[in-house]
């Protein structure tokens, strides 16, 4: 709706505290669709210039910025090539440049990393961080939960058109934690712990344990207990659920969830 692709059924959009005005505010928005939206037969330089001018940049300014971005992305030699001559990953980079060239305040990225190699993924990831640091809001959609964990501050999970989850990454993880901890020992796992009433053992390995702390007990109590028993602890850390797990739990039972369960 912000990009003008869909009509809102009801309600209104506010941008920068004011009612959203597509004619003027579109120059403050950068949108990168999942599929490539570029003229295949057009030269890359001209095409970028054209899209930048449509976003309201003057020709001279657009050229300067394109050159900056092309230098940064090592694309300077591409100016006279046609889009159809580029690989999918290269097209992706180009599309990203056209999306952010006019310094939008709001950047909407739909699956920006699909088809990219790790080097270019990092390149674009760094640019996204940089843009966010400079004050742009980035709306970013993906199915890759590890990317969400790495990049996002705030997440919204949508299943079948309904919002099922909304919050900061940290908050969501806290909300879904199960009080799981991993304790590593310097020696073999002591058997004495199994009898303790404030925890239950979930998994036992050679010299580490995954335990679930019972409600209303504190971490210190557990540590105190172990130390008192005379065992030396190498590490003690909380296992927060990954967003992947949360995702699966939230959409459990839907066809989409089954697909992700197979992945794990």
């Amino acid at each position: 709706m912000i990009t003008g692709i869909f009509y809102p059924d009801s309600g209104s959009i506010k941008f920068d505290g004011k009612s959203f005005d597509p004619a003027n505010d579109s120059s403050k928005i950068g949108y990168m669709p999942e599929e490539r939206g570029l003229y295949k037969k057009m030269k890359i330089g001209e095409q970028t210039l054209y899209l930048a001018q449509l976003k309201g940049l003057s020709k001279r300014e657009a050229v300067t910025r394109i050159n900056q971005w092309f230098d940064r992305f090592e694309m300077s030699t591409w100016w006279n090539k046609k889009v159809e001559d580029l690989s999918k990953g290269m097209q992706q980079k180009l599309q990203f440049v056209t999306t952010v060239l006019h310094n939008p305040k709001l950047i909407i990225l739909d699956e920006p990393f699909s088809g990219l190699d790790p080097v270019n993924t990092n390149l674009i990831k760094d640019e996204i961080f940089e843009l966010a640091k400079n004050g742009a809001t980035v709306i970013f959609s993906t199915h890759r939960m590890e990317q969400v964990e790495e990049i996002c501050d705030h997440i919204v999970l949508v299943n079948k058109g309904q919002k099922v989850l909304d919050g900061t990454v940290k908050q969501v993880k806290q909300d879904f934690k199960e009080n799981l901890f991993r304790i590593s020992f310097a020696q073999a796992v002591p058997n004495e712990l199994s009898g303790a009433d404030f925890l239950s053992i979930k998994k036992q390995e050679d010299n580490s344990l995954i335990i679930q702390r019972n409600e209303n007990r504190s971490n210190n109590e557990i540590l105190q207990y172990i130390i008192n028993q005379g065992f030396s602890i190498e590490s003690f850390n909380e296992l927060l659920p990954s967003l992947n797990d949360i995702f699966i739990r939230q959409v459990e039972g839907t066809p989409l969830a089954r697909r992700f369960q197979n992945l794990n």
Partner: peptide, 18 residues
């Protein structure tokens, strides 16, 4: 048709009116 199938339209409508 080129603009539609090439999904250029999606980019364009975020800049200009259809």
């Amino acid at each position: 048709m080129e603009e539609k199938t090439g999904r250029i339209a999606e980019i364009m409508v975020s800049s200009v009116k259809p």
